[in-house]
């Protein structure tokens, strides 16, 4: 899509999103907006519906209703693979590294959905560990390596909207630090990012806006500058 977006252009708008797993009604009208080049976080307790929100955007839940505007296109009725083709890259919470594929096969697996993705060389320069482990089976990588691979994998495809689910979960502080650096670089490169995070300290300096999710809807919106003043409310919601 060649048209130039002015900064501040809306890239993802989720309106009154409801989603179900079978009979279980998980999302009860999620509303949020991410502009091009922004990074927002979805905060909340486990089970609040943050992961389900990402999965619903990608069409991975059961029945869903409402509206998901992606780069000007309505995605609510689309099949999963068509949504990805609108330029969405996804890192699932469980990382989703294929055990039967080598690290490099994993890296090359997602189809290119738009031009402008990073080259294999650039990715190996960004994640030198992956270059060393390129021939290893996916199942043999460490947790940190798997997470790097899961991120690198979607940067190759040219996707401009990244949905990152709990990327710091279970990782050593030094790797979390490295991931923070990666996110900062992606922001500078004008990627649009939705972070689902349990680790508020990780998300706080990275995100332009925090959406606090509670019982399948957005309970509060906190701008970057307001965080200090609303700490008490955040503590209450997140139980930290």
């Amino acid at each position: 899509m060649p048209e130039a977006h002015a900064p501040g252009t809306e890239y993802l708008r989720v309106t009154d999103l409801h989603a179900f797993y079978g009979e279980a009604h998980i999302l009860h009208g999620m509303d949020f907006v991410v502009n091009r080049g922004e990074c927002v976080s979805l905060l909340g307790r486990n089970g609040a519906g943050r992961t389900t929100t990402l999965r619903a955007i990608l069409g991975l839940t059961g029945r869903r209703s409402g509206s998901i505007m992606l780069n000007g296109r309505e995605a609510i009725g689309m099949a999963s693979h068509r949504i990805a083709r609108l330029g969405v890259g996804y890192c699932p919470e469980e990382r989703g590294i294929y055990a039967s594929l080598s690290a490099e096969e994993n890296l090359l697996l997602p189809p290119v959905v738009a031009s402008g993705g990073m080259s294999l060389e650039a990715l190996y320069a960004m994640f030198p560990n992956l270059a060393e482990r390129r021939a290893s089976q996916g199942s043999r990588l460490s947790g940190g390596e798997q997470q790097m691979l899961a991120i690198a994998r979607v940067l190759r495809t040219g996707a401009r909207l990244l949905l990152l689910d709990e990327i710091t979960e279970g990782l050593a502080p030094v790797i979390v630090e490295k991931l923070g650096e990666v996110i900062r670089r992606l922001r500078e490169a004008d990627y649009t990012i939705v972070l689902v995070e349990q680790n508020f300290r990780f998300a706080m300096p990275l995100a332009d806006r925090h959406y606090v999710v509670e019982r399948g809807r957005v309970a509060e919106v906190v701008g970057k500058g307001e965080v200090e003043g609303r700490m008490e409310m955040l503590h209450e919601y997140l139980g930290v």
């Binding site: 083709r85 699932p92 997602p110 495809t157």
Partner: peptide
């Protein structure tokens, strides 16, 4: 291995 994720990648 994981068809849902593969589809979410655009396949």
């Amino acid at each position: 291995e994981n068809p849902a994720l593969l589809q979410a990648f655009g396949v």
